[in-house]
Amino acid sequence: MQDKFLIAVVDDDVSMREAVKGLLRSLGYDAVTFGRAEDFLNFDRRGRVDCLIADVQMPGLTGPDLHARLVASGESIRTILITAYPDPVARKRALRAGVKCYLTKPFRDEDLQACIRSALDSDAAFDRRPSREAP
């Protein structure tokens, strides 16, 4: 069993992906990154991911589409969406669909950290952690 939470970052912007990954590791989390939502869906350890941070606008499958697909398949990965193009309607729709947090780029490290804590503090995230098997 892992001691650290595993957080996946899905963003087509490599500099954003790497910056968020570096922040996550500095905060003590394990992090994996993907340039496309489809790559995350093909990740063989997806069931071990405790939290997902995904960009709203990406080529192919978008962050909200990725979240919807995970929900439809019965996967309850806590999701945080990030975007450079704020849209209040999209934000409201995402939060109603179960997204835990919706941040506008650029965001402060502290804001992302607060979103992650909120997502991981939920009972469902903790309830499924002990039952996960190591790879």
Rank of each mutant, 00 (worst) to 15 (best):
D121E: 11
A134P: 04
Q2E: 07
A68Q: 09
P88E: 14
P59M: 14
L103P: 03
M16W: 05
P130W: 02
D127E: 15
D123W: 14
R45D: 03
G74W: 05
A119N: 03
R36Q: 08
D65N: 10
V9P: 01
C101G: 13
F107R: 12
F5A: 01
R78W: 01
D123Y: 15
H67V: 10
D121G: 14
M16H: 02
S76M: 11
R132H: 12
H67G: 04
D3A: 12
M1V: 02
T104H: 08
V9N: 00
Y29R: 02
R93H: 09
K92W: 09
P130F: 03
A31P: 03
V32E: 08
L95P: 01
T104W: 08
D44P: 07
E110N: 13
C51L: 13
R91K: 06
D127Y: 14
D12W: 04
R96E: 07
A84H: 04
A68D: 09
N42P: 08
R25F: 05
L61F: 14
A72D: 13
L41N: 06
A8C: 09
P130Y: 05
R46Y: 11
D127N: 11
V10S: 00
H67W: 08
L23P: 06
D3C: 10
D12F: 11
D55W: 02
T79F: 01
A37I: 10
L52G: 01
A114M: 12
Y85R: 05
L24C: 09
L70M: 12
M58P: 00
D65H: 15
P130S: 10
Q57T: 10
V71E: 12
K105W: 00
Q57R: 07
C101F: 11
P86A: 15
R128M: 08
Y29L: 00
I80L: 15
R78L: 05
V32Y: 14
L41P: 11
E18R: 15
D39A: 10
G22E: 08
G60C: 05
L66G: 10
P59K: 15
E18M: 11
T83G: 02
V71I: 10
G63C: 13
D3E: 06
D121W: 08
R128K: 04
P106T: 11
D30R: 01
L41T: 08
F34I: 11
T104R: 12
K105D: 01
D13K: 12
S26R: 13
R48A: 00
D65S: 15
D55L: 02
P130C: 08
D121P: 02
P130K: 09
R46S: 07
V20N: 00
L23K: 13
S26K: 13
T104P: 04
